[in-house]
C-alpha cells in the first residue's frame, strides 16, 4: 500500500520541519520514534463495522477503517453523511451502537478517560467558555487535563502565539470573530499535547489567510508525530492535507484512498469543459466520447485533454473549451451525486 514511499515522504517532511524551518519544534517534540524500523505502522484508530443509530435514523452504517500513526486521515461527505457522528464516537463523547472500536488500542466504552487524556478535539459546533477570556479558556481547559498550573500557564501563552491570537489574550471570547473563535478552539485542542487530533470542520468560516495558517500548523503538528483525523467540506483542503481519506454518504464509506489515487481512479487526469449546445452534444455522441452534462456545460473526463480538445476543434466547432486538471471535487460529485442533501 505504498508504505515505503510514505515513509520517505514523512522523513523528508521531518527533516524539512526540524532543520530548515526556524520555528521547527518550537512547540513540543514528541519523543516517540516517528519511523518504525520496518514493522507495520501501528494503528491509532481501528474501527470495524462501526454503527450508530439515533432511534430510527442510522447515522453511521457499519463502517470500517484504520488510521495509522502520523497520518492525516480525512472524512468527506455531504451534509448528514455521518461524519460528525463518527468523530464523536472516536472522541468518546458518544457511545457506538455496535461494532468494534479501538483508539490507542483501548476501547472507548471501557477506558474513555485514558483515551481522552491523549486526544485533542475541535468540535463542529464551537463551544468555547463565554465566562472566560481567550487565555482563560486555554488555562481552564488544561486544568481539566490535570496539568500543573505553571505548565498550563506557559502552554496557554505558547498556544495563543501559535494561532496568532496574542493581541486577543484578555478579550472575552464573545468579542472574537467567528474565525478567531475557530483558531482558539484549535489552540484549545492542543493544550494537552495530544497524540491524536480529531478536527470536525476545523476551518469552517475562516478567511483564506487563517485557513492557510491552520493548514501550516496542522502540517507542523503532523511533522511532530501527531495523528490527525479531520472532516471538511473544502475539497482543496482535503487534497492538500490528507494522506488518506474516505468519502462517506448515508452512513457508509464509499471509497478510501489517497487524494491523488482517488482522482486518478474515479475521474482521470483532466477535465475538458465545453458550452452545452445541441451541436456539441450530437458531435460528441458521434465521436463516441463519454460526457456528462452539468447545468449548461458539458464535462469530459479524460487522460489527455489535448486529444479531446483536438477532436472537438476538428469536428464540433465549439465556442469555448476549457481544460483543467481533475480534482477531488470531481470525484466527490461523481460519487455522491449533485443533488442537494436536505
Amino acid at each position: 500500500m505504498g508504505y515505503p514511499a510514505e515513509h520517505l515522504f514523512t522523513t523528508i517532511n521531518i527533516i524539512l520541519f526540524y532543520f530548515l524551518l526556524p520555528q521547527g519544534g518550537f512547540l513540543w517534540i514528541n519523543t516517540e520514534p516517528l519511523v518504525y524500523g520496518g514493522g507495520p505502522i501501528p494503528s491509532i484508530i481501528e474501527a470495524t463495522n462501526l454503527k450508530k443509530t439515533f432511534g430510527r435514523i442510522t447515522a453511521v452504517d457499519g463502517i470500517s477503517f484504520a488510521v495509522k500513526k502520523g497520518e492525516v486521515f480525512g472524512f468527506l461527505g455531504p451534509n448528514g453523511a455521518g461524519k460528525t457522528s463518527t468523530m464523536k464516537i472516536i472522541a468518546c463523547v458518544s457511545p457506538r451502537t455496535s461494532g468494534a472500536l479501538r483508539v490507542f488500542g483501548m476501547d472507548p466504552d471501557i477506558s474513555p478517560a485514558e483515551i481522552k487524556q491523549r486526544l485533542g478535539v475541535v468540535p463542529q459546533e464551537t463551544n468555547l467558555d463565554p465566562d472566560f477570556t481567550c487565555y482563560g479558556n486555554l488555562f481552564t481547559y488544561s486544568r481539566y487535563f490535570d496539568m500543573p498550573s505553571d505548565v498550563a500557564q506557559k502552554k496557554a501563552e505558547e498556544l495563543l502565539e501559535f494561532v496568532q491570537l496574542r493581541e486577543k489574550r484578555d478579550v472575552t471570547v464573545e468579542k472574537l470573530s467567528g474565525g478567531m473563535k475557530r483558531r482558539l478552539i484549535l489552540a484549545r485542542a492542543l493544550v494537552n499535547n495530544p497524540d491524536l487530533l480529531i478536527l470536525d470542520e476545523p476551518t469552517i468560516g475562516l478567511d483564506p489567510q487563517a485557513r492557510h495558517l491552520i493548514w501550516e500548523r496542522l502540517k507542523l503538528l503532523q511533522a511532530q508525530g501527531n495523528t490527525i483525523v479531520l472532516t471538511t467540506h473544502y475539497l482543496d483542503e482535503a487534497a492538500r492535507l490528507c494522506d488518506r481519506l474516505v468519502i462517506m454518504d448515508n452512513g457508509k464509506i464509499h471509497v478510501e484512498g489517497s487524494p491523488a489515487e482517488l482522482v486518478k481512479e474515479y475521474v482521470g487526469n483532466e477535465i475538458v469543459e465545453i458550452e452545452k449546445t445541441a451541436e456539441v452534444l450530437s458531435c460528441l455522441e458521434g465521436e463516441h466520447i463519454p460526457f456528462e452534462i452539468i447545468g449548461d456545460t458539458v464535462q469530459i473526463a479524460t487522460e489527455s485533454s489535448r486529444e479531446v480538445a483536438r477532436i472537438l476543434f476538428d469536428h464540433c466547432s465549439p465556442h469555448k473549451v476549457l481544460t483543467r486538471p481533475a480534482t477531488l471535487e470531481d470525484v466527490f460529485l461523481k460519487l455522491t451525486g449533485r443533488k442537494l442533501r436536505e
Partner: peptide
Amino acid sequence: QKSFDAMIATP
C-alpha cells in the same frame, strides 16, 4: 454555553 459538551471531551 455548551460547557458540558466541552468538558466531556476532556478526561
